[in-house]
Every structure is written in structure tokens, then in C-alpha cells.
Nucleic acid binder design. Structure first.
Lengths: 185, 185, 185, 185
DNA sequence: GATGAATGAGCGTTCATTCAT
DNA sequence: AATGAATGAACGCTCATTCAT
């Protein structure tokens, strides 16, 4: 349902009728809508996490790893627009009481990126002052692409996969040439 | 209203009472909510466009221009979360029948970026194969930052302005070092 | 509706269908159920107040006044069980945010009683230490009768009007013989 | 549960989780909610009955007995608002099919009162024409006090225990001075 | 004796929209 | 140009109850 209509189209009633149960039945498994969405978010992170873990191969160079990782992320986003929306775009106001612990999985993904970046530093191919900050910026780049493509905000004249490819290439290359000083703030 | 509550908090009733008119009166000016939001989107693009135009100064180098432009964009997003949301994140489903022509303003902004990039090429400081593609990728980077910051998905331990600064710096630098071949797709 | 089903049977939907309107329409006149019930309570007090005022005649002795007043109160309760319930029995939990000012009307009624009691003192027929306290106790007596009769808790073998009469007589006489000391608490 | 939330807060689900059983299990012991509440009502009467029996001492004068009895009743009501509510205020509509026999306990309490009144007559301190009627009126007085205090309808400026004391005193004294003719109805 | 799964009915409420005036 | 009155649809949610196990 998330895929088709996005979060806005996600109502207890619709879910119920979609799965062939009464709306009441959902409340047997989740205390309320918040918790259900919450569970979906966790599931989304689990899927993304698995996909990312699955793509990494020991023996790969840092650049190769990063490339795979970025492509996996973008692919996940484009293939799971509903999950992606609740994971990364759902307005905070709708997310009251969502346990911070559940974002640990998300952090976990960022940590993987960070680790690859550090590996690249060891290999001498990346030169980063603040790997965590760099991981965030990388994430922004990928998210920007996924987000705008999903929101159909990109020019139809450009192929989406070309956009994705360029984004990933730019993102990875940015790390390779990043030998300038970091902000002093 | 958009600023305070975001798109979710935007209802005809609330708008009506906020402007001191009856809800019915809105329908004298807009056929429906879609068209009203549509108008708001145009207004948003007008604001962003004006902000970006206002920041550019003749005589600036391409890099300087690009820096200013990027910062202006990010600033606009962070200062106008509601506008930003409907301009770039609102789910397509809610946007049926939105005339494509209205995205011309948006395109206009991209075109400005593209022009600056071309100027940088003339100056010899940028080396880009496909300036339009590059402009899009640049946009993705900025949007990713704005979007995730607005959605409160960034680690609280990192200062938001530092995130923004790093993003802009990375984005601009990416253009400067982009001397590799473009995708063959 | 209150008459037939009591407060428990008072739902926005039922009201709506009872008056031949949609449930939504009620919200055009009252912000919510609380306020609607609130308005009903005020209306109830207005009715009771009018009934009590209407029964008092200048020239009556205090005892006569009190008798009429008590009978009017009991009669009101028995004839308007729904109103009576929300006025005097509705559980406080359902009454959050009910402006205290609205109970001023209720107080007003008590004040009338108090005034009559003071008049009786002047006439030398009542001897009361604390007229306000006495007015409350009198109220308790009447309310007890109304409340239990409405709740069908009285023995069916006793005629309800006889119960009411006895209650009123006892209540009035209690004031006449009250020449003992008041509590020292 | 009745004590904390009153009848309104009494749901099968809540009861079930409170006693550590499933909601379904309750139906093994009671055909439905009505019967369960019914049982609670009986339990309430048992508690009240025991309290009243326990307070009576052989050797007490009728007046003393009556005083103790009245205080016990009021105390029970104020201490067990939930029980008191279902015993004496619950709307008849919710009580369809409640066997009248179960009110025998209630009657029993009234009978105790009646007996004390007759004892007082023998002692020459009470002069009552219809002891059963008088017992009812006495009950009304006490119930009125309990009911209005529980419903938070009394003026906050008057101490509740003072209200209770005055009520009891008035009630007892009413019997002592009741030497006038009864209604002719 | 006990339960998990399931449900229909109902709740108060909000929404975008229409229409006669 | 403006509005009050009205509505159907939908929302999240709670309830007492049933039934197969």
C-alpha cells in the first residue's frame, strides 16, 4: 500500500480491507497507527540494512565497496518508495513517541558508510578530515536523488538511472578529492 | 501556516479562519484545494527564484556565484519548510492536474545553476561534460541536505549549519574536479 | 433523547439522525460533544431556574415558599430526567473543561433557597445557624429523592408522589425545628 | 477499578487485563457484562451490609444506632464511589434483566433502618406514622449527600465532612420531631 | 478452564466540497 | 464578493461479544 499511495494513503481501514481483515483486528497486533507505522519503519530499515550488508564483499576495495553501497541505497529507495518515504521523509509531527532506539538501525547504515570511508583512508584513496560528517554528506547526496526522483520532480527528459548513476559517481569522487580543510565552525 | 504546521496542517477551514474569511470564499478564487496548493507552490518558486536572483552579483566568479546560490537555496529550504515541502516533497498523488508549466519556474532555477556552471567552464575552473546533468546532481545534493534536516533525520550531535556548509562545499568542489568521463548510458 | 436514554444514549450521530441532520452539522453549532452537553446543562438550569422563579409568589410565608420551591424542584427532576441527570449526576470525568461560571445558575437556585430560609428566620419560624449549610442539606434531601426515584431504586410498593411529598415535608419541617447547636468543626 | 474510574471506566478488556486473564475468560464466569456488573452490585451490597451490621452494637440507644448507621452509609459511599455508583445511580437502561431478587440485600439495609426506627418508637424518642416510609426518606437524605458530593456538585467552600455531618444530624433529628400527621394520599 | 483471533457496531471528529442566498 | 448551512466520506479508535482451538 505504501508503494502505491504513499503514507497519505495509509489508513487502518484501508490496510484492513487490503489484507482482508476488519480494522479492529489490526489493533490486536499493534496498539495504534503510530506503532504500526513504527514497525513498518523498522522493517524498512531491516530491509535496507540487509540489502546493504548483502552487497558488500570482502576483498573489495573501498571505492568498489562504496560504489556498491551507494547503488544499493539508491536502488532500495527507488524500489521501495513507500518504505523510503516513512523512513526518511515522514514528517516528524506524525512521529511523536517513536523510540529513538529504532533509529539505531539507520545509524548502523551510516556507520557502515563511515567504516568504508575509513578503510578508503587506510588505502590512501580517500582523504577525509571528518569521516562521520563525510558519511552524512554522502547520504544527503543519495537521499536527494532518491527523494526527488520518487517525488517526480526530475526532468522527464533525463533518464532516472542516469541521474542515479551520476549522483553516485559524483558522491564517490567527492570523497576521493576531498583534501581541503574542513569548516572551522 | 505552512511554516508552522507543514502541509499536513493545511486545511481549507484553517486557511479560511486564518485570513478572516469563510471557507466557502476560498472557492471563489480557487476551484479546489489542489489549485490553491498549486498556487502556493508557484508562490514558493517565486520566492526562491527572487532569493536566488537577489544573491547573484555581476562580477562574481563562477565559484563565488555557485557558493552564494547554493547557500541561498539551502537557506530558503530551512527557513520555509512548508513551502519547501509542497515544492519538492509533496507526494505526486496529491498533485494530479498540476500544470507542468508551473514547474517552469523551478526549471528556471536549474537553468541559472546551469548557466553558472557553463560560466565556470569558460573560466576554466569547472570541467563538465553535461552541465544540465551536473546541475541536477548539484540540486540533489542540496535537496538531500535540506530535506533530511527538515525531516529531523540528522544526528543531533552534528550542527545543522555545519552540515549545510559541508554539503555546499562538497557540491561546489565536485564540479571543480569533475574531469572524468561521463556515463555512457 | 436524554429523557429516553439518559446521557449514555447521547451520541452525536444519534442526535443528528434524531433531528434529521448529518452528524457533521452539529459541529457547526457546537465545537464538540462537551460543549453541546454543556449547553444542555445550561439550558437545564435555565428551565429549572424559571420553574422555581415562577412558583414563588410575593406575599407567601417562608414556609409556603419553601414548600412550593421544594415541590417545584422535585417535579422538575421527575419530569426532566435527562436534564436532571446531566445537571446533577453526570460524572465529573465527562465534564472536563466545563466552565465553572455555568454552575452559577445552579448556585443561583441555592441562593433562592437560602434567601427563603433567611426570610423564615425573620418570621421567627425557622431557627438556623448557617442558612447556606442548611440550604445545602435541604438540597441533598430533595436530590436524594429525585435521584433514587429516577434510578428506579425505590420500592415499587410505595407511590412515588407519596415519597416525594414525604421528602418535602420532612425537609421543610427539619428547618422549623432546627434550634440546636451547629457542628463545631 | 470501579473506585478509580467509576462505571464508565469499566470495560471487559480492562477488567481482564487487570486480573491477568483474557477477556474471553470472563465469559466463562458471567454470561455478559450485565451479569458481571450485576454481581458487582451484589458484592457492593454485601460490603455495605457488612459495614452496617458491624457498626451496630447491642445496648445502643435507637438514636445512637441511627447515628452510627447513617455515618456508616455515608462513609461507605464516599469510600467506594464506584460501587456506590452502580448500586444506586447506574441508569436503569443498563440494568435490564437484573433480577429484582438481588435488591433484597438493599431492602435488607432499609429494613435495618426501619427496625431501628421502630426501636426508637418503643423508646419513645421517635414518633413516626409509617416507619418504612420514614426509612426511605432518611435514605434519600443520605443518598442525596453522598451522590452530590461524589459528583463534585457541592460548593468547594464547604468542607465535605461538615456537609456529611450536617446531613446525618438533620436526618436523625427529623425522626425525633416527626410528630405531625402523615400525608393523606 | 482458558485463550488468541476476529468482528460489527459505534464512537467523536475532521475534511473538502456544494449550494442557496 | 461573500457566506452560513449542510453533507458524505473518511479518520483512528474502543467496545462487548463470538468462536474455534
Amino acid at each position: 500500500m505504501l508503494v502505491v499511495e504513499g503514507y497519505a494513503g495509509l489508513s487502518m481501514r484501508k490496510i484492513a480491507s487490503a489484507i482482508g481483515y476488519s480494522a479492529t483486528s489490526i489493533y490486536l497486533h499493534y496498539p495504534g497507527k503510530d506503532e504500526l507505522v513504527h514497525a513498518l519503519i523498522r522493517e524498512g530499515f531491516r530491509l535496507l540494512s540487509r540489502k546493504i550488508q548483502g552487497v558488500l564483499t570482502t576483498g573489495d576495495s573501498a571505492v568498489e565497496s562504496l560504489n556498491k553501497l551507494c547503488h544499493a541505497y539508491v536502488e532500495f529507495g527507488l524500489e521501495n518508495p513507500g518504505y523510503y518515504e516513512i523512513m526518511f521523509s515522514l514528517h516528524p509531527v506524525s512521529m511523536t513517541s517513536f523510540p529513538v532506539s529504532d533509529y539505531r538501525d539507520a545509524r548502523g547504515i551510516l556507520t557502515v558508510v563511515e567504516r568504508v570511508i575509513r578503510a578508503g583512508e587506510s588505502e590512501g584513496v580517500f582523504m577525509i578530515e571528518d569521516p562521520f560528517l563525510a558519511a552524512n554528506v554522502l547520504w544527503f547526496q543519495l537521499h536527494g536523488a532518491v527523494s526527488l526522483i520518487l517525488a517526480s520532480r526530475t526532468d522527464v527528459s533525463i533518464d532516472k538511472s542516469r541521474l542515479a548513476d551520476s549522483t553516485v559517481r559524483t558522491a564517490v569522487r567527492a570523497l576521493m578529492s576531498d583534501r581541503l580543510e574542513s569548516p572551522k565552525s
